Amino acid sequence: MKKSLYLSNLVIRSAVDDDVDTLSDVFRRASLTFKGDRDLIATHPEWLVWDDEMLPFARVAVVDGRVVGFASARPVDDFLELEDLFTDPDWMRQGVASALIEDIARRSVRIEVTANSHAIGFYESVGFVASGFANTQGGPAPRMYLNVTRALP
């Protein structure tokens, strides 16, 4: 996985109550990054509301005291379902999301996700494989999985 020189101070930790406002902000800004999604999101503003029930499953990426991304993955049967993976737009393409996936992989043997079409290339780059489609409120979306088969530190 790619690492950026800027991420030498990256710390990944569990999210806490004090992070919720920042997570909501990163979630909203990152979701609006893709111009093609803005009309659909404008039709469904409820999609940009952070779900407080995900807080116990959230991991936060922090650089020099600043939250630069987060991911949440909840247990389902014998795998983790990746519910959220968002990077602050100022920190996109610098290895934050890859580091968060690596962190989650330490906790499971399999991770599954319903991928946004904009994120398919990223998921493939970190080892996810397509496994079909899921029906979502925004239309059909690719399902992908990552089997964690390598030894992690």
Results as ranks from 00 to 15, higher is better:
Ala115Lys: 01
Gly95Pro: 11
Thr43Phe: 07
Lys2Met: 12
Val16Trp: 09
Phe70His: 09
Asp19His: 03
Phe57Arg: 08
Leu40Thr: 14
Tyr123Val: 00
Glu102Met: 04
Arg74Phe: 08
Thr22Ile: 15
Ser31Thr: 05
Met54Ala: 08
Ser31Trp: 02
His44Ile: 15
Val96Thr: 01
Leu146Val: 02
Arg28Glu: 05
Glu83Thr: 09
Asn135Lys: 15
Leu80Val: 06
Ala71Pro: 03
Ser131Tyr: 02
Glu46Ser: 14
Val16Lys: 06
Arg66Tyr: 03
Gly127Val: 10
Arg107Thr: 09
Leu5Lys: 10
Asn135Phe: 14
Arg106Gly: 15
Val60Gln: 05
Tyr6Asp: 10
Asp25Pro: 10
Leu5Ala: 07
Asp64Phe: 01
Pro153Phe: 00
Leu82Pro: 12
Ser31Met: 05
Asp17His: 11
Met1Lys: 03
Ala58Arg: 11
Val129Ile: 15
Tyr6His: 11
Val60Pro: 00
Ser131His: 05
Ser14Phe: 05
Asp25Ile: 00
Arg107Leu: 12
Arg38Phe: 11
Leu10Met: 10
Thr149Gln: 14
Arg13Phe: 01
Ile12Ala: 10
Thr114His: 00
Ala130His: 15
Thr136Asp: 02
Glu83Phe: 10
Met144Trp: 01
Ile104Glu: 00
Val76Arg: 00
Ala115Asp: 09
Val11Thr: 12
Asp88Phe: 01
Trp91Tyr: 01
Arg28Lys: 07
Leu23Tyr: 00
Val26Met: 12
Thr33Glu: 14
Ser98Asn: 01
Asn135Ser: 15
Phe34Thr: 00
Thr33Phe: 09
Phe79Leu: 11
Ile104Met: 13
Arg59Thr: 10
Asp88Leu: 01
Val62Ser: 06
Asp39Pro: 04
Val126Ser: 04
Arg107Met: 12
Phe86Val: 10
Arg74Cys: 06
Glu83Pro: 07
Gly65Pro: 03
Asp37Met: 07
